[in-house]
Write a protein that binds this DNA or RNA. Structure first.
Lengths: 187, 187
DNA sequence: TAAGTCATGTAATCGGTTACATGATTGC
DNA sequence: GCAATCATGTAACCGATTACATGACTTA
């Protein structure tokens, strides 16, 4: 259900082709939803057959031609109605935490290494989000134009979650070090 | 892939039946993985046929009989090997944030109401986690027995994420109120 | 001519959910 | 007798991933 509305939401910022939508999911929207090209193209066809988006062919020079989709009035209507609908709590599925659940079974040193590797990945992700955040810089959050409000808020959420992970990782590292009889944190 | 290891991880704390595993996913483990009974029973059968768990019938009085599963040496071996394996970053899928992405389309008052409803759900969840946390209370985190280390760390992660959401919700509320021309926060 | 990006799809499979089904046992 | 909990499954479906496939166009 959410994929169709994620696509409709992206189209409120302007018309996009399937390929461009795919890119958005990889970059800016990736911190709360994602989908691969193989899922997006059929969904766009379905949305068009239901009259929620309208596609048109666009000739290009220097690139292959493409088909871009625009939100129809009915599409906008359904999206706005859905947006204020109650949402079930997201049940997280985190493979890494499944591993952490069994950290008591392995050598603290091995657990520490696995934890540090994951923390590094999250730090890279945070840096990427910070770079996107810089694009909003200077704007008064309260006065950000309506088209930027949602993107700004969701980005702030993404940043908040990664920061929460990093804070937790620091706490976990201290506990594991203490168990291993290792000295205080390095850096 | 993760479900089988989540089950194996649960069994390190003692033998469990399919029904008991189902209950654990609803309660204590729910903050990072979950599965329904319909998925758990077939998976247990598969794990047994692969020799990673061993089931035995248990007669009960006052309740229907059950079949409890124990981790085999091979199951423990595969689990410990998997635990320190690198994990891909979890790509979040959050229906609520898909909605927030389009908050610029609706009346700030409507967005604020939807946000407040979701925040209330998260507050209830936090209270439930805090209640579980109390069971660890008094124990020195560094000295918690090996069987409790993973459960404690994952619970702390779950609490951290919910708190991060609540902090974000507060920020989002201030921004939406400012846009709506509403006065400062109530409580 | 080869690699890289732009652009759009199909097919097979898998993990997970919804719906459905069954039966024991307890307590009201 | 009925609801609730304990206990274990099957079947149909769906959302999503992996693998596969095609072709235009650019740059080196």
């Amino acid at each position: 259900m959410s994929l169709r509305f994620a696509i409709l939401g992206l189209l409120t910022g302007g018309d996009l082709s399937g390929y461009e939508i795919t890119r958005r999911f990889e970059q800016s929207v990736g911190y709360f939803w994602h989908a691969r090209a193989q899922q997006i193209y059929p969904e766009l066809a379905r949305l068009e057959s239901e009259g929620l988006v309208a596609g048109r062919a666009v000739q290009q020079t220097g690139k292959p031609d493409k088909r871009v989709y625009a939100l129809t009035p009915r599409g906008l209507e359904e999206l706005t109605a859905w947006v204020v609908t109650p949402s079930p709590l997201t049940l997280t599925k985190d493979e890494f935490l499944v591993k952490v659940w069994s950290y008591g079974l392995v050598e603290p040193a091995a657990a520490l290494a696995a934890l540090a590797a994951h923390r590094r990945q999250q730090e890279e992700r945070l840096a990427a989000y910070r770079a996107i955040e810089a694009a909003f810089e200077g704007a008064d959050p309260a006065a950000v134009p309506p088209g930027f409000l949602g993107p700004y808020l969701t980005l702030r959420a993404g940043i908040g979650f990664v920061e929460a992970f990093l804070a937790w990782a620091g706490e976990a590292e201290r506990i594991l070090r203490a168990r291993a009889g290792l000295p205080a944190p390095p850096a």
